[in-house]
Computed example of a mutant assay.
Amino acid sequence: MPILNSQIALVVGAATGIGAAVARRLAREGAAVVACGWPRPEGPHSLACDVTQDGQVQATVAEVLRRHGRIDILVNAAGVIAKDSAATIVDAVWDRQHDINLKGTLRVMRAVLPAMQAQGRGSIVNIASVAAFNAGADSASYAASKAAVVALTRSAAQSYAPQGIRVNALCPGWVDTPMAAAEMTEMAAEQGITEAEARERTVARIGLGRMASADEIAGACLFLCGPDASFVTGIALVVDGGSRVAAGARAV
């Protein structure tokens, strides 16, 4: 029997990449998935939702509750990335990353939590990043936003555990998605190398010697959503192929 049989799952940021893979995986495991994002994901039951607009977030959650009467699982996967360092951060770029990565996560949680509290159960997974713990020199605002997502997750886990609501963060490393492909293009242009060389240099810093697939990250998300993680809350699960281990080995 599918492990999420008949559960209602809202996946935000499901238009592409990790969010799309999560939506597919949860559906295969029996969940009734409402995929939402900006632009609207493909599929007859999907919804358009810009997480920077609180009114749209509230309307999206209300529509899911109208259709299904409850929300058992929430996955927050909306996110953007830009390169900068502390001395070069532009306020508008900092604000956009925090508005989507952090405040977008907060807006959706804030809209969904009352329904989960009324149900007396629920599972929330916020997609953060290994950058929350291992920030790159050129990822200041992105890493700061993802570290804040981890802190928000841990605070919410403490607040809502007595009501049967689990809240966890998933922290991927490099994942072979359109976002990563765009970063390879940017890296190649900056360093005067080919995109293939940029990818080669990137995976050389990963213990397993490759990027993850979005489906592999979706598998980790499924674990956090599902019954095998019924006693797991407040964690930040790192799925990075050993990149932090490899970084430590190089530093010795």
Score class of each variant (00 low, 15 high):
163 Q>E: 14
37 G>E: 05
58 Q>E: 13
205 R>F: 05
247 A>N: 13
203 V>W: 13
164 G>I: 03
140 A>K: 02
203 V>E: 10
113 L>C: 01
8 I>W: 00
230 S>R: 08
246 A>K: 15
133 F>W: 09
35 A>K: 07
222 L>N: 06
133 F>Y: 13
164 G>N: 06
95 D>V: 09
84 D>A: 04
166 R>V: 01
247 A>E: 12
221 C>Y: 06
7 Q>I: 07
216 E>W: 11
64 V>S: 02
77 A>M: 10
182 A>V: 06
129 S>R: 05
13 G>K: 03
67 R>V: 03
171 C>S: 05
185 T>W: 12
59 A>D: 04
99 D>N: 06
119 Q>I: 00
18 I>E: 00
191 Q>E: 15
22 V>A: 00
67 R>C: 11
199 R>Y: 13
173 G>P: 04
186 E>D: 14
91 D>A: 14
231 F>G: 12
3 I>Y: 12
69 G>S: 04
118 A>G: 09
237 L>H: 08
165 I>Q: 03
60 T>P: 02
233 T>H: 10
75 V>F: 01
149 V>I: 07
8 I>A: 07
65 L>C: 05
128 A>V: 00
84 D>Y: 07
188 A>L: 10
5 N>C: 13
213 S>V: 03
24 R>D: 13
17 G>M: 04
160 Y>E: 00
237 L>G: 12
127 I>E: 03
24 R>W: 02
94 W>S: 00
87 A>D: 15
126 N>S: 02
224 L>Y: 08
17 G>V: 06
105 T>L: 02
110 R>H: 10
217 I>A: 03
84 D>I: 04
103 K>C: 01
55 G>R: 09
142 Y>M: 05
202 T>R: 14
165 I>G: 04
69 G>Q: 08
250 R>P: 01
133 F>T: 11
55 G>A: 12
47 L>R: 12
28 R>L: 13
162 P>K: 06
227 P>Y: 11
197 E>H: 01
46 S>E: 04
152 L>Q: 05
213 S>F: 11
184 M>G: 07
30 G>S: 12
39 P>E: 01
36 C>S: 00
49 C>E: 00
118 A>W: 07
106 L>E: 04
116 M>E: 00
54 D>M: 11
54 D>H: 13
